[in-house]
Amino acid sequence: MGVVEAHNVKILGSGDQTVVLAHGFGTDQSVWKHLVPHLVEDYKVVVYDNMGAGTTNPEYFDFDRYATIDGFAYDVIGILEEIGISSCIFVGHSMSAMIGAVASVARPDLFYKIIMISASPRYVNTVDYFGGFEHEELEQLFEAIQSNFKAWCSGFAPLAVGGDMESVAVQEFSRTLFNMRPDIAMSVAQTIFLSDLRPLLCHVVVPCHIIQSKKDLAVPVVVSEYLHQNLGGKSIVEIMSTDGHLPQLSSPDVVVPVLLRHVRFDIAA
């Protein structure tokens, strides 16, 4: 099967510039439903599912390939090559912000700029870095995923989104999270939470727009400033008044105008 079919790639709208929307852990391309209608009149929009998302065939998930972010990054390059995109505005949420960064180091020509939402190069605290988590907390998280995936999903979704179980956004995230096969969810969670991409940042020369909620369970606000200081190219930071790790789902009225502004605005201009 081709890369395009395996990742459920859809090409919408038309325009001279291409915007690629890449989702984070536990979601799929449906997380962009509030943003897509605002882009399709002016841009060619590409949406796809990361391998391992509940909408992809679990038989295609290679545990060795996706043990590092590199495997996902090579998927992005493969998708862009297969559909003939020579340059794109890459909008990456959470893990996909870092996937885009890794892909841009290998193929900077494919990326006009990267818009990072809720991005982190490392989640674990060290002596001189605050990522938000201690190793023990992550061990507990992995244990919870392994022991009772459904119960973990029910508890994690409202914490990540920043709302109660009654909210539409929490229910939506719960649905896409629970659609993942538990062993695949565990593998992807370990890849994300145990990765350390800080040494790579200086090699990212593509302009980056760093967008962050003021309150995010997974990514402290200081991480956005760390990215800004350590990326190899031009970057800009915007902290939004939103709560939660999936603001494009939980606060679209705030986030959509911000994202549209960053899609249209160039740092270098």
Rank of each mutant, 00 (worst) to 15 (best):
V40Y: 02
N148A: 13
N125D: 15
A160M: 08
A189M: 11
G84R: 03
Q17Y: 11
P158V: 04
D70M: 02
Y43E: 04
L110R: 04
E143T: 08
G54N: 11
V3Y: 07
G155T: 03
R198N: 02
F193Q: 10
F156L: 12
D266K: 13
A269D: 13
T126R: 06
D28L: 03
I115Q: 09
A22G: 04
S235H: 10
D253R: 10
D16E: 14
K215I: 06
F61M: 09
V205S: 14
C153M: 07
V76I: 12
A218H: 09
M98D: 08
L197F: 03
A160F: 07
V19I: 10
H34D: 14
L227M: 14
H38A: 13
S167M: 12
V124L: 15
C202P: 00
G100V: 08
R181Q: 15
M186H: 10
P220T: 07
L39K: 09
F193N: 07
Y48A: 06
V9Q: 04
G71H: 06
A268W: 02
T68L: 08
I69C: 07
I85M: 08
D216C: 02
I77E: 09
V40W: 00
F178E: 15
P58M: 10
M95E: 07
I267G: 04
I117K: 07
S187A: 15
F265V: 03
H135G: 00
S87Y: 01
E143G: 03
H7Y: 01
